[in-house]
Structure formats: C-alpha cells, structure tokens
Amino acid sequence: MRPAKQNETRKTLGDTVLRVNNLQVDFETPLGTVRAIDGANFDLRAGETLAILGESGSGKSVSAAAVMGLVPSPPGRISGGEVLLGDRDLVRISAREMRRVQGDRIAMVFQDAITSLNPGLTVGYQIAEPLRVKQGLSRAAARKRAIALMERVQIASAAQRVDDYPHQFSGGMSQRVMIAMALALDPEILIADEPTTALDVTVQAQIMDLLRNLQRETGMAIILITHDIGVAAEMADRVAVMYAGRIVESGPVQDILYKPSHPYTIGLMDSIPTLEQKFQRLRQIDGAPPVMTAVPKGCAFHPRCARATDLCRTQRPEVVYLSPQHGSACHYAKEVTRE
C-alpha cells in the first residue's frame, strides 16, 4: 500500500477501496472492434477524490461505466482486467450480485441531471426508490428519508417539493436531486460523471461545494470524471489524465499541476487562458485526438507531440514513476517539463 499523503490537512486518507487493474473495454462497431479502454490502472482510497481528466472520446466515461457495471452490452464488452472492490472482482460477478453493489456501495451521478431523472415519477419517489426496493422501507418511512436527503443536499422547502416532478426543477436543483438519490444507501464510492458540465458557472461552484461538504461528512470516496482541468485542480486529491483509452499520467494534484511530466498534460496546462495573456491567442494542442478506430501505433499522442522521436512512433511507452505516486506513460517522462 502506498503511503498516505503527509501534507494533507483536510482529511486523512484511508485504505484503498477500489483498484482497477489493466482494464480493457472493447466496442463492436461497423468498422471493427474498437478498444475504448486499453489497459487502465488506477486506485481509489477511502475519503479521497480522484479526478479522471480527459477530452471527449478519451475513455473517461467508459471507465466509469465499467466500474459501475454499466457498459452497454452489446456493443460494449469488458475484455480484460479487473475492478476490485475489496476482494471482489466486479468484472466477474453476476448481474444479480452487481445490483447489490450498484447504489449500495458505488453510486453514480450523471452529467445531464434533467434527462437523467425519470420525467414521469416524482423526485421523492426516485430518491426513495432504493430505500423501498433494497431496504424494504415503508412508503411513509422512505418518504421521510427522501425529505431528509433533499434537505441534506440543500433543496429549500424539501417537504413541499418532494412530490414535485423533475420538470419543475432547474438544472442545478435536478443535480442536487441526483446527488440525494445517489446518497440514499450511503455508498462508499460516488462516481460523478461531468456533474457540472451542463450547469452555469455559479451553479457549478455550488454543486462542487456541496459534493465537498458531503464527502467530509460521509467519508465517501469520489471519482470525478471531468474534461475541465480547473474543476480537477479545485476538487481532486489525485488526478489521472486519460488520452485515447489510456491513462497517460497520474499522481497527486500538486504534481500534475506544477510538475506535469507528460507532453499531453503539459499541453492541457498551457491551453488554460491566464490573465497575463489576455491579448494573445489562446494556446492549443495542435492536431486532433485520434479516431478510436485508428489509434496511432507506439505512443498514441506522438502525431501531436513536438518532441516525438522514432521510439515514440514504434513503441508504446511504459509508465515511468517520477515519485512513488506520480507516473507518466512517456518515454521521456524524466526530461519533459513545462517551461
């Protein structure tokens, strides 16, 4: 087990609750089999927030779906690796056993809360449903718990709003409902898949604050899927950067922000606009992410990388550890730094 971070003041990190080893997810497409996740490794410790950072198509949402047992099948399939929750491999358990993990031990919050809630059922019903179905609570008791959960996610006048339908809630309030629903069975892990992408900036900040406070109260671990490096910097204890189905760099948030050691991460950092460069062109990473049916050989990033060599074009880089916790899948990890 890796040592807990020493400079942590907010909380002390606990044991590893989830370990993903060499995960592979394939999708059957008309153009052939696409490997959406190609050997992802990460772990999650009790009470921490791990941000999985990447562009759309990088495989970050598929990773979340794989952990959650929600890879759409067909066309998707977990073709290799393991997802260890304690000593149980979630890839190999039955669908029935997986349903006792979903919601009970790992819960999920989705990107677009408005379409992710059932328009035909009251929010109270949807929040209370796991309690009624899985814990056998009576209608009245479940309703009471639903109101309490709504108060916990700071929905004003929860007792009046419990019988309202999702269309009567704003985007931010819908996301609070989603979070209340996810918290119902007191899970150890919360996966938040772009939870604030569809929201206004001010509402975004409120939802992030809420998640942070709830984490402090419950001690649950959070996997935060995001494309927003700012969100990751603000929320995460550790960051895993994904590119073309692989984790290219991972480590404590300070290391990723201040000592990025993969050209892709450096490119992401450089593309953040700052106040000083107000009148300059925004910097960007040249080129576009690869089409997943034709991932470049060797290092998938090499066509966009300024320092790519023949080695990069032919050989897939292994993870190089710059510190016990900070790894980068670049042949030149020890040399690349951000100017």
Partner: peptide
C-alpha cells in the same frame, strides 16, 4: 434508450423494475 434508464440501472434496480 433514454438516459434516465441508465440512472435507474445505476441504482441497482432489477431489469423488470
């Protein structure tokens, strides 16, 4: 095929439900 079905499945509900 709608997104709320994935939410329902993520809650660990049975396919029948």
């Amino acid at each position: 095929a709608k997104p709320y079905i994935i939410t329902a499945r993520a809650k660990g509900l049975s396919p029948a439900r």
